[in-house]
């Protein structure tokens, strides 16, 4: 009995120095796994179906954002252009670009809809209703003019700044939820919608569920 107690005391003394070792080791491994390895594991990287070059379209073709991404007459947003819209210029190759040639062969000629294949970085699930009409530049800049100098700034508040890219960024998708890594989540919506300052005046927003959910 004596011996045992002696042992116990020794152990207690030792653990005072070494005891935390295994704990810290376990903690570190788990933390590294949890913070780094696990998110990697959960993410799938996808390439866009066509290496669309925004810069070329803006700078060389002289297009504006609104040529493709516009508000329809009925208030809905066009989003990504359709194959038919692309084919207005690209019915046959107008450059030597391999991607363009491939796009025409695989999409325009075969009548495949690019809109269905394109990966939207801010893709919202079906249960979300986002109104591009309501979140417009004129309204937001009544107060937030220092934040958004151009309409594009407002777009970039949620969207990736793809307009300045020559090749589309990699699309990162969560394997389990299927959500894009860049998509906007509810706390971001609530940053404005749960802020009572937006309830009157110019924005007249509400935080009712069905304003964003359908």
């Amino acid at each position: 009995m004596e011996d045992k107690n002696q042992n116990l005391e020794n152990v207690t003394k030792k653990s005072a120095i070494l005891g935390l070792g295994p704990f810290i080791l376990g903690l570190t491994i788990a933390a590294i796994f949890g913070w780094h390895a696990f998110p990697e594991l959960m993410t799938k990287e996808l390439k866009q179906p066509v290496a669309f070059n925004h810069v070329v379209h803006i700078e060389q073709a002289g297009m504006t954002c609104e040529d493709c991404h516009y508000l329809r007459q009925d208030g809905t947003f066009s989003g990504v252009p359709t194959t038919a819209a692309c084919a207005e210029c690209h019915s046959s190759p107008i450059t030597e670009n391999q991607e363009e040639i491939r796009f025409i062969a695989e999409y325009v000629d075969k009548g495949v809809e690019i809109k269905d294949k394109w990966l939207v970085y801010q893709k919202q699930p079906d249960n979300v209703f986002f109104s591009h009409a309501a979140h417009n530049f004129e309204t937001c800049t009544q107060c937030h003019d220092y934040l958004y100098e151009t309409p594009q700034d407002l777009c970039n508040a949620c969207h990736l700044d793809v307009a300045s890219t020559t090749t589309p960024p990699v699309y990162k998708e969560n394997r389990l939820s299927g959500y894009s890594k860049n998509t906007m989540m509810m706390p971001t919506c609530e940053a404005c919608h749960a802020n009572p300052e937006h309830y009157d005046g110019i924005t007249r927003a509400t935080n009712a569920c069905a304003v964003c959910h359908k």
Binding site: L20, G21, L27, A30, A31, G34, W35, F38, M42, S177
Partner: peptide, 24 residues
């Protein structure tokens, strides 16, 4: 046991469990 306890604390402190709950 200490190693395992550390592991659990580390896992709980990392976003792993919580993001998985959300993702589910």
């Amino acid at each position: 046991l200490k190693f395992a306890l550390g592991g659990v604390v580390g896992a709980v402190a990392s976003p792993m469990i919580w993001t998985t709950l959300y993702d589910l």
